[in-house]
Computed example of a mutant assay.
Amino acid sequence: MEFRVGFGYDVHQLKEGIPFWLGGIKIEHTKGSLGHSDGDALIHAICDALLGAANLGDIGLHFPDTDPTLKGIDSKLLLKKCVELIKKEGYGIGNIDTTICLQKPKVKELIPKMRESLAEVMGIDQSQVSIKATTTEKLGFVGKEKGLAAYAVVLIKKI
């Protein structure tokens, strides 16, 4: 059985007065994640990890921010498409491990909902999706609440 590993990373600016989507769910907060799509940095990191593992490029190649049809798109649709792309190459998801770097809001209590949402979109069991959250102890752009970062590692396997 062939296994492959992929890594994804995404950063988005936080801005007042826009919706905040993270891990496929809408979070109540005064700031939201700025992006061409809905700005869901966690999903974008997972997409990059999946595409990278299957040697299919990155999210910008498949869903460029210059495409007006993608303006404001629900990132769950992008994730679903990435899963279809790796399946077309003969791969299935083994597991996904992610980390969200965010000073505020605290998202620990929301992680089960995120896992449920992401697993449903990808057609996998929640036990295959790990989400962790951390702050940067008020250091850097994350600590100053100017943005957030998300990291993802995936294991895919030939099916």
Rank of each mutant, 00 (worst) to 15 (best):
F3K: 09
R4E: 06
R4V: 10
R4W: 03
G6E: 03
F7L: 06
F7T: 06
D10R: 13
D10I: 04
K15Q: 08
G17R: 00
P19S: 04
P19V: 03
W21H: 04
G23M: 01
K26R: 15
K26W: 03
I27Y: 07
K31M: 04
S33N: 12
S33I: 02
L34T: 03
G35R: 04
G35V: 01
H36T: 11
G39P: 13
D40S: 08
A41P: 13
I43R: 06
H44K: 15
A45Y: 15
A45F: 13
C47V: 15
C47M: 06
L50A: 09
L50Q: 07
L51W: 09
G52C: 07
A54P: 01
I59D: 02
F63R: 04
D65N: 13
P68Q: 08
P68Y: 10
T69W: 02
T69P: 01
K71V: 11
G72M: 09
D74S: 06
K76I: 04
L77R: 13
L77G: 08
L78P: 12
L78Y: 09
K80A: 15
V83A: 02
V83P: 02
L85R: 05
I86T: 07
G90N: 11
Y91E: 12
Y91Q: 09
G94L: 15
N95D: 09
I96S: 02
D97A: 12
T98Q: 14
T99F: 08
C101W: 07
Q103K: 10
K104A: 04
K106N: 12
V107S: 00
V107Q: 01
E109M: 13
L110H: 11
P112N: 14
K113Y: 02
M114I: 05
E116S: 11
E116L: 04
L118G: 03
A119R: 10
A119I: 14
I124T: 15
Q128S: 07
Q128W: 02
S130R: 14
S130A: 09
K132E: 15
K132Y: 13
T135D: 12
T135Q: 03
E137K: 11
F141D: 04
G143W: 00
K144W: 08
K144T: 07
E145V: 07
K146F: 03
A150V: 05
Y151L: 14
A152M: 05
A152V: 03
A152D: 00
V153C: 08
V153P: 00
L155D: 05
I156Y: 08
K157V: 08
K158T: 00
I159P: 00
